[in-house]
Design a protein around this nucleic acid. Structure first.
Lengths: 389, 389
DNA sequence: GTGCTTATGTTGCCGCTCACAACAATCCGG
DNA sequence: CCGGATTGTTGTGAGCGGCAACATAAGCAC
């Protein structure tokens, strides 16, 4: 008979181990004294916890470093990013990227697929991922161990199932991506939505570090979001929360690809930008930015319209979520750079009374938000229970 | 020197005490064996916890009741609603209500102010509350002790401060209601938004019991909401989250009292209903319902328009939050009853692909949601730390 | 350099909490 | 009246973190 044991005391231990490991993972190297101060635990307890984590190969202790102040120097503890890593994959419309990410959230190595946009076939995608995985693992030191695979996808993903329910831009419907990947490995596989994972990464170590309530906007051709509420990602009942692209901002607006009218992404998405600026179909956002900089006729005015709709949509989100921060990433990153004043005035005009405090900014992790979020997803089980691995 | 003690083990004890007490508060009377099963704790532990809670006067043990099955009958444990109560107050546009609510969430006694709508003066309100409080306490048994005061207000309330930032329908701006009430008593005072508190109560013991993700809609003349996400109330950075009344659903719509155009409450609020149905200003919602039932000309068609806007707004919320349940209360309760088919079809038309699952229903606690939510707010400190009181 | 101060690492002990097991109590069914 | 089943009761034990005493290692003043 196996030890059943709910064991509340065992949980205390696990909780404290997790707390210390997560602290190191998020904050980076920290002295034992620093850990003591931040956790509120006793020196002896911290010592025991760190020793145990070191024994598990999750952290490394290095020789004491003098802090410059009086007193005995404290031993430094750091996440063992060389020993423990995950594989992170980001499946977007315009890119297919993979990286080996070490504990602590450092990208150790990365690779991408060329001319990815030519085919979104599921089998082809799986082969691409397998190839990239092999490449990355080949470059890893022998003593490093992979503890999981995390995938970000630009589509609706079921909470725990790893099924991509609907990814219109890839043409995927009900693709059991998690299961398909799990068949190729013994490692745990986790799949999440690009917006949710981007928000997670920005919240943890990007522009939203230390911010408990934020809205993260992203997009390539469409529009997506991830929302952090009280320090936790907003998932909803099935994991579909944060689907802001098809909220209706303009009932009299244009027909959307989804068949309805005036969806937010129809007013501010890539197609809307090209239509408003009069630039030819196929123009990239980089070229739009160049045209704007060059003062091409109609571009400035067209983007002002886009900015106004962007601001109006953001206003509704701010009214509903009351976040401290809105982060613009992906397509909206570029749009925000081009139209910031318009967005701000459109937002200010639409906010309820006492809302002076919301800040607007762009992604702090650049285009890697979703990729790093996927890594966090893969690290999550280890961080929650360091003893399991 | 005072015992400092973070004491993780002390926290375990407190946590377990709180778990047991909350379980009894939410679920109602439960046998010791039932507590053992639900908490996963050991029999001896449950015994110790219950004994301690009984010593604090928070629960009462009654003689064993045979369950009909074999085995020794288990001792029943119930929340001591006769010994421990709070004062709950609900400040609405059309009502000012107060109640004495016992542990376990039972309304023991209640009272209300007549002709409240005549004046929303803050001092008058405070006097009303003082009078009601005296009445209710006078009717309380001598051995019962009041552990807090909770207030629900139809306006924006700052998270922890108890300041009513903005209550347009009462004409209140920056009223420090929490502090004003705290001056009259030594008890802890907590103030919250009507929508948030209504959602809390419905989530705990109303139509949303057992549902971790829900949207609660309410209103009197305007429109408000409370949102439960992952079992926790959505607060936002300052506590203003859930302000859905002034999200813009119709940019080409009518001018709102807030100065902008096409806010949701402008399209479905009380004024909009009267306008759409052609009924004279001052008509109550009860009279609207009678007119509908009597088949008054224009009323049915007018309400169909209202229902369509209601459904469209709900659709956006469902897309953003992916809740399992939407609860209609207050004004929207009546609107939903009158326009359910329209709301449903409007909603179905606007949902993203895989969203068959959201349920729509009306408040399970009738018009008492906010009042009971205020009581929960007042109980919260005791439930979080039973040892404190 | 020497001694003082400061801060941390190390170690053994203690109190607290919960799990567990053995026994007692109580009900049901035959 | 007896056996089976379930629960209450009680004493014991293991695990965990706090604590205090001591050891160690730096900075600082002279």
């Amino acid at each position: 008979m196996i030890r059943s044991s709910t064991g509340t005391l065992e949980e205390v231990r696990r909780h404290n181990l997790a707390t210390v490991l997560r602290l190191l993972h998020v904050h980076g190297p920290l002295s034992r004294a620093g850990l003591t101060a931040r956790t509120g635990l006793n020196r002896s307890t911290v010592r025991a916890l760190v020793t145990e984590l070191a024994g598990l190969g999750l952290v490394a202790e290095s020789s004491p470093v003098s802090s410059g102040t009086a007193g005995r120097p404290s031993i430094m503890v750091q996440p063992a990013s060389d020993n423990v890593h995950v594989l992170a994959v980001d499946i977007g419309v315009e890119h297919l990227t993979a990286a080996r990410v070490g504990l602590g959230g450092v990208i150790l190595d990365r690779t991408a697929v060329e001319r990815w946009r030519s085919s979104y076939d599921v089998d082809v995608t799986l082969r691409h991922i397998a190839t990239m995985r092999a490449t990355l693992e080949a470059g890893a030191p022998a003593h490093s161990r992979c503890v999981g695979i995390g995938v970000a996808v630009c589509g609706l993903v079921g909470s725990d199932t790893g099924v991509v329910r609907f990814a219109p831009n890839l043409g995927w419907v009900d693709v059991p991506l998690g299961a398909l990947l799990a068949d190729t490995t013994t490692l745990p596989v986790a799949v999440g939505n690009e917006g949710d994972l981007g928000a997670r990464a920005e919240h943890l170590r990007g522009a939203g570090a230390g911010t408990a309530n934020l809205v993260y906007l992203t997009g390539e051709v469409g529009l997506g979001a991830g929302i952090i509420v009280g320090g936790r990602p907003l998932a909803g009942a099935d994991g579909y929360a944060g689907e802001v692209g098809h909220t209706r901002v303009n009932p009299g607006g244009r027909e959307c690809r989804c068949g309805r009218r005036g969806c937010w992404e129809t007013e501010v998405g890539e197609d809307a930008v090209l239509r408003a600026t009069g630039l030819p179909a196929g123009t990239s956002m980089a070229e739009v930015m160049s045209a704007y900089a060059a003062g091409a006729p109609g571009v400035r005015a067209g983007l002002a319209t886009i900015g106004a709709w962007l601001g109006a949509g953001v206003a509704d989100l701010v009214n509903v979520f009351n976040p401290e921060l809105v982060i613009f990433a992906g397509l909206t990153h570029q749009l925000f750079q081009l139209t910031e004043p318009t967005v701000r005035s459109s937002l200010d005009a639409a906010l309820n009374a006492p809302r002076g405090r919301v800040r607007l900014t762009v992604a702090g992790l650049g285009t890697d938000s979703a990729l790093l979020g996927a890594a966090e997803l893969a690290f999550a089980p280890v961080l929650a229970n360091p003893l399991a691995g």
